[in-house]
Design a protein around this nucleic acid. Structure first.
Length: 576
DNA sequence: GCCGTTTTCGGCCCGACTGTTTTCAGTCG
């Protein structure tokens, strides 16, 4: 049984227990277990076989036994019992914004409502307002929530949310009295998608704060204002994305930024740690036991007061970063400035929109020293893949461009060679040997079945001419799952042969993903962070790839294209 | 249900906003 399936079951059990009014902490235990199983980065089944389930944070004897039952029988008695007690339609009520377990239970027990449609009808007929704690306004909120649910588009790509956040922040910065403004939340942690956006503004006085709120409510992107108070305003954009803005005084910036960056799990751990140190930590201050406050204007001060070095936002998921900080063994994370080159982009030779020269100049403008030309190979007809003859003619043009760049930038000759359905590469080895570096990719037959796809990947990894495997799983966020492959076997083979696995920075890919990056690094795999640019603006996504690497705890030493062009060429040559 | 160089039992983060309430419950993050 897959990790995600187990996580889904535990999360559903948490919801059902919540509807039954179970203890909050028991519910949280199920949620935490679900989250940790989902992001494990290696197959739960393997951990189970090794008898190491209880080493997973949040998994104790009881939940380990439940996982064991699922692995052995494919079923879980406790889950089935809950399903028999709580109708699936009642669980669906939790999806409605502002609908929680208490209200869901109320609607179900009092009115027999077991689905969103029945809830909508009851609200329209005015039957909800008679219930205890409900009124006409609550009834309207239910209808508004259902409406929002119907229009909901799901999570938003980081690559979409990030530029939007900066447009909004720039506008808010223009308001007089604004001292600082930044993104917080999952956006600042650089998660691959965000459910909503958190923005934070420091204003020098209450009058400035009021003006910030007013300006925010009037931004072009605002579709509706959900709520607005003196410190918090929530809006929904015309595209359906919720954006929360908090305004605060500069002296409390550190605690606020720390708090609103999250994650929730990280904050819960940090607050527990604060209590051990004699503080109560909130978004406003560290409060001592005698009630006096320690204000923090920077995040560094917050962590320092708790005896910790600053923890980079990308690590704040309660996946061991607090323990690592306590033991002073946080990784020295890779930074954007460490990236010296890009090992995948396309030109008009295949499916790109700009020439070799234009792309080289654009890459140089982004601060890179070199880039590997990786137009598609002949087998990928839809992308106008190159024949062997094309490849050789392209080489001449590459050398021409290098002369024009006059030593300030270097184009390298490469290919994104197809891994065919039978596992063979689309160019013979002697052709690959002519190139500076070779990137191999699977674009078709991703649904062949686990054994076959894994075998193709392993064959490509073991070819000594292949230096990098592009977008290894082939996933497209929100569109299609990655191929079903034995990632452990792939990581072990890549570690053994020294073949680098790509973190493709294209917003819909971010493949490898963060959890895979972390596991790959643990096993000694080298990575490459590539833009996969198809036009001159395509290089702007590289920071997303770096962020994904950081979320996987990567250092510069884990990434081959942090090396100089000479070292990258030597690395590739040494592998053949 | 998890977890422990203060605990194997008794804790488990803290506050804003809203609507229903005259002091609080529910939801959210």
């Amino acid at each position: 049984m897959k990790n995600l399936k187990v996580a889904e079951i535990f999360a559903a059990m948490a919801d059902m227990l919540a509807i039954q009014g179970e203890s909050y902490h028991r519910i949280m235990a199920y949620r935490r277990a679900a989250e940790n199983v989902a992001v494990l980065g290696r197959p739960l089944e393997e951990v189970w076989r090794a008898g190491e389930l209880e080493a997973i944070p949040g998994i104790g004897k009881t939940l380990a036994a439940k996982i064991d039952e699922l692995m052995r029988t494919g079923r879980l008695e406790a889950y089935e019992k809950l399903q028999a007690q709580v109708p699936a339609g009642v669980l669906a009520l939790l999806e409605v914004p502002d609908g929680g377990p208490k209200r869901a239970a109320l609607f179900w027990k009092e009115l027999g409502i077991t689905g969103v449609e029945a809830l909508e009808q009851a609200a329209r007929e005015g039957r909800l307002r008679a219930l205890a704690g409900m009124g006409a306004k609550s009834e309207e909120k239910v209808l508004a929530g259902i409406d929002a649910l119907k229009r909901r588009t799901g999570r938003t790509l980081l690559g979409v949310a990030w530029p939007l956040a900066h447009v909004m922040l720039d506008a808010l910065c223009e308001v007089p009295g604004v001292v600082q403004a930044t993104a917080a939340g999952s956006l600042r942690r650089m998660r691959e998608t965000v459910g909503d956006m958190d923005l934070l503004v420091a204003a020098e006085d209450p009058e400035a704060a009021r003006k910030v709120m007013a300006r925010f409510r009037e931004l072009d992107q605002v579709g509706e204002v959900l709520l607005s108070g003196p410190t918090k305003t929530s809006i929904r954009t015309v595209d359906g994305l919720q954006v929360d803005l908090r305004v605060l005084e500069p002296a409390r910036w550190g605690t606020a930024l720390q708090y609103f960056t999250g994650s929730q799990a990280h904050n819960i751990r940090l607050r527990a740690l604060a209590l051990e140190r004699g503080f109560s930590l909130s978004e406003y201050a560290l409060k001592r036991e005698d009630g006096t406050e320690l204000l923090c204007a920077t995040e560094e001060e917050v962590y320092a007061a708790l005896g910790l070095p600053s923890i980079p936002p990308e690590l704040r998921e309660d996946r061991g970063e607090i323990e690592a900080a306590l033991e002073d063994r946080l990784p020295d994370l890779l930074q954007m400035v460490d990236l010296k080159g890009d090992l995948q982009f396309h030109t008009t030779w295949s499916d790109g929109r700009q020439t070799l020269l234009e792309m080289a100049q654009a890459a140089q403008a982004r601060g890179l020293a070199y880039a590997l030309v990786t137009d598609h190979s002949q087998g990928l007809g839809v992308a106008r893949g190159l024949t062997v003859a094309d490849l050789r003619r392209q080489r001449a043009e590459i050398e021409d461009v290098n002369r024009k760049m006059d030593g300030t930038f270097r184009l390298l000759a490469g290919t994104e060679v197809e891994v065919r359905a039978d596992g063979a590469l689309d160019f013979p080895d002697h052709v690959l040997a002519e190139l500076d570096l070779v990137v191999a990719a699977v674009h078709s037959g991703l649904r062949q079945g686990r054994e076959q796809v894994t075998a193709r990947m392993l064959a490509a990894i073991r070819n000594p001419h292949v230096d990098v495997i592009a977008h290894p799983t082939g996933r497209l966020i929100g569109e299609r799952e990655g191929a079903d492959m034995d990632m452990e076997a792939i990581f072990r083979a890549a570690a053994e042969t020294g073949t680098a696995l790509e973190i493709n920075a294209y917003p819909k890919r971010l493949d490898l993903r963060d959890a895979h990056v972390r596991r790959a690094i643990e096993l000694g795999v080298k990575l490459a962070i590539n833009s996969d640019a198809h036009d001159v603006s395509g290089f702007v996504v590289l920071p997303l790839g770096v962020a994904t690497a950081r979320r996987g705890w990567a250092t510069a030493a884990d990434v081959v294209n942090t090396c100089s062009v000479e070292k990258v060429l030597a690395w590739a040559a040494g592998r053949r």
